[in-house]
Amino acid sequence: MSVTVSRAGFFAVLTVLFMATLIVLPFLGASTITPWDLLTSATDAIEREIVFSIRIPRVLVAMLCGAGLGLGGMSFQSMFRNPLATPFTLGVASGASLGAALYIQIGVVFAFAGISGVTLAAFAGALTSIAVVYGLTRLRQELSGNTMLLAGVALSFFFSSAIFFTQYLSDFTQSFRIMRWLMGGLEVHGFGTVLELFPIILGGLLVVLYLTHDLNALATGEEEAIGRGVNVARTRNLLFFSVSFMVAAVTATCGPIGFIGMMSPHICRLLIGANHRYLTPATALFGAIFLAWCDTLARTLIAPAEIPVGIFTALLGGPFFLWLLLSKNAGHRF
């Protein structure tokens, strides 16, 4: 059998979960608010404020981020034919983290167009790492997959050390804020972040959907893809920049939640196979649902305190992924 579960069944389950996520999650939290509470409460009641200004935007942001990270991981894994490749492997996350760490350490507070300084600094850091990886690869005249991956990994290590060094130079409060940022979080207020992320994620999704045939061809090998008629250099550049940009925006918003990007595509691939026509929407949906539920559990389980979502996604997803990996049928998929 090439497919472990039927695609139609998997998509039916994903669709139901997607709707359930949208409908149920805004009512869950430190205090459970029922739809009845909303209907009966006064228009300026605190429950309304919590649901409409905090929880609904937060659920939507989590879904957008999860979808973006999943798509990013899927594209890079297929493009580089490497199960460990994600935009994070190529330094996007460490670039963003360094940007955020420097912003916190330097202590200048600014914001632009309603976007917080730390988000902007993280975004700038991520874009810098994208530019550096691309520039380093161009020096070698060719955009070879392994050169790019290794350049990204080397850059990640360099940035990680720079983050530690920044933390070392920081005072206790700054150091705590840096560490907290590195654990990831989805605190948002109002729909601003949703509106900023939506076009970016949608754009990324459209690019990936446009290139599903290319990704299928690339998944069988680079020379094979060229032989099928894929303009590999163009496809790779287009994917590299649009997907990196998307993941840079996500990381700047919610911190380095790397696990979703790595595992969502693998879990979907194990369940429905590698055909990107189906894998692309499945990964986006799965990532969206998974991050939204992780975030809700993270802010509910030990309420009123919150477990940082970055910790929670890996705690929950790691064992699930290992179970799938070790189950029968999984071996020949990697």
Partner: peptide, 9 residues
Amino acid sequence: VVSPFSVRE
């Protein structure tokens, strides 16, 4: 390098 697809795919 082995294709991750079914024969038909």
